[in-house]
Simulated assay, not measured.
Amino acid sequence: MVFTHDTELALQAAVELANSTDEPGEPLGSVRDLVAFYDRFGYTGRLDRDDAELRAVRGLRPRLRELLVADRDTAVGLVNTMLAEAQALPQLQRHDAFDWHLHAISADRPLADRMLVETAMAMVDVIRSDEMGRLGTCAADDCDDVVLDLSRNRSRRFCSTTCGNREAVAAYRARQRGEATG
Rank of each mutant, 00 (worst) to 15 (best):
M1K: 02
V2R: 12
T4F: 00
H5A: 13
T7C: 14
A10N: 10
A10E: 10
L11G: 02
A14R: 05
A14W: 11
E16D: 13
A18C: 11
N19D: 10
S20I: 03
E23W: 06
P24R: 05
P24G: 03
E26Q: 15
L28N: 03
G29H: 06
G29T: 06
R32A: 15
R32S: 14
R32E: 15
D33K: 07
V35T: 13
Y38N: 11
D39H: 12
G42K: 09
Y43Q: 13
Y43G: 04
T44A: 15
R46N: 10
R46Q: 14
D51R: 11
A52M: 05
E53G: 06
L54Q: 10
A56P: 01
V57N: 04
R58T: 06
R58V: 07
L60V: 08
P62Q: 08
R63Y: 08
R65Q: 07
V69Y: 06
A70M: 04
R72L: 10
D73Y: 08
T74I: 02
T74F: 00
A75Y: 03
V76Q: 02
L83F: 09
E85V: 05
P90W: 07
Q91G: 03
L92T: 03
Q93P: 00
A97D: 15
W100I: 12
W100A: 14
L102T: 15
H103G: 12
I105T: 13
I105L: 15
S106T: 12
D108P: 00
L111E: 09
A112F: 06
L116F: 00
T119F: 06
T119E: 07
A122D: 12
M123L: 12
D125P: 02
R128W: 11
G133N: 13
G133I: 02
R134K: 04
R134S: 09
L135M: 08
G136S: 04
G136E: 06
T137E: 13
C138H: 01
C138Q: 01
A140D: 02
D142Y: 03
D144R: 03
V147C: 04
L148Q: 07
S151L: 03
N153E: 08
N153P: 00
S155K: 05
S155C: 03
R156M: 01
R157K: 11
C159I: 01
S160W: 01
T161Q: 12
T162P: 01
R166K: 08
R166W: 01
R166I: 00
A170T: 05
R173P: 00
R175I: 01
R175M: 07
R177A: 12
A180L: 14
T181S: 12
G182M: 03
